[in-house]
């Protein structure tokens, strides 16, 4: 059935999505690049200078990196542990998996609000601490004066919300490893930890790579969670982009922020692609 029409068929099927993505992804991408590098239609670096010299810039960069560099490793370790626990579960695996992946369906804004309810002055955390006698009354953790507590509040909320993403990827990867490898290792004398380090982790590299890239890129885009919990007390990169766009009506600087995030994301992706690469001959 290799008529001309059937040879064209795959391209015809792809065409609508390609056109769509070209219009709504490639074009805006190029526009963002040009927008960031121009002022009033003329090529210039004004937007970038404006961005860098802004008061909040350094803070936003520091906060975002701090958040990403703490949240991602925690989530990888947690998700790995959860995935291994899930594998050992004899019954009820589906129920537990469903519960653990509920946060996947929760908007980052909603997740922020959830933890606001807990961390807020008169919230549940303080009620518990009060009950344990550790504090005297409603205490504020999420203010400008308590940056460390605010950071940890945002950290917890992000870990709560987004670990499920990593869990699902890692668990899928774990399921793909034939159990014979672990059994063979066991028969030939490997203890559980040795099997995990020498057999499971290396075979999990592709999934780890995917999870790291996806989660890190998403982590650099953190926005609504921070806004819901800390308002404007904890500047982050996307929050600043939003600010410049909506409140200062300056799309140019917002675009500059966008390009910065793009550059960081691409950099992180390249690093992970290189660091966790598997030689083709090592593929199962």
């Amino acid at each position: 059935m290799t008529t001309v029409r059937s040879r064209l068929l795959p391209y015809l099927l792809l065409a609508p999505s390609v056109a769509f993505l070209a219009a709504l992804f490639l074009v805006p991408l190029i526009q963002t690049i040009t927008l960031s590098f121009s002022e009033d239609g003329v090529p210039s670096l004004a937007n970038y200078t404006r961005m860098v010299s802004d008061l909040n810039f350094g803070l936003a960069v520091r906060n975002t990196f701090l958040l990403v560099l703490t949240v991602v490793p925690i989530q990888i370790v947690m998700a790995l542990a959860m995935a291994m626990m899930l594998q050992k579960l004899p019954r009820g695996r589906d129920v537990v998996l469903w519960i653990w992946t509920i946060p996947l369906g929760i908007s980052d804004l909603a997740a922020g609000l959830v933890w606001l309810a807990i961390l807020q002055d008169r919230g549940y955390l303080n009620s518990a601490l009060y009950g344990l006698g550790l504090i005297d009354g409603p205490t504020a953790w999420l203010t400008y004066e308590t940056p460390v507590a605010l950071f940890f509040g945002v950290l917890v909320a992000e870990v709560w919300r987004a670990t499920a993403i990593v869990l699902v990827i890692l668990f899928a990867g774990l399921q793909l490893i034939p159990k014979e490898y672990k059994e063979a290792a066991e028969v030939f004398g490997a203890r559980p930890w040795t099997t995990f380090v020498r057999i499971t982790l290396p075979l999990l590299k592709p999934s780890l790579q995917t999870a790291l890239i996806l989660r890190t890129v998403l982590a650099f885009e953190v926005f609504a969670v921070v806004y819901a919990i800390g308002g404007t007390n904890f500047p982050v990169l996307v929050g600043e982009a939003y600010n410049w766009q909506r409140n200062y009506q300056n799309t140019g600087v917002a675009a500059a922020y966008a390009m910065l995030i793009v550059a960081i994301s691409l950099g992180a992706t390249v690093v992970f692609l290189w660091a966790l690469r598997t030689k083709p001959e090592q593929q199962a």
Binding site: L24, P28, I213, F220, E221, A258, L266, T269
Partner: peptide, 8 residues
Amino acid sequence: RAFPLAIL
């Protein structure tokens, strides 16, 4: 995926 899509 590698790009913060919403920012576009």
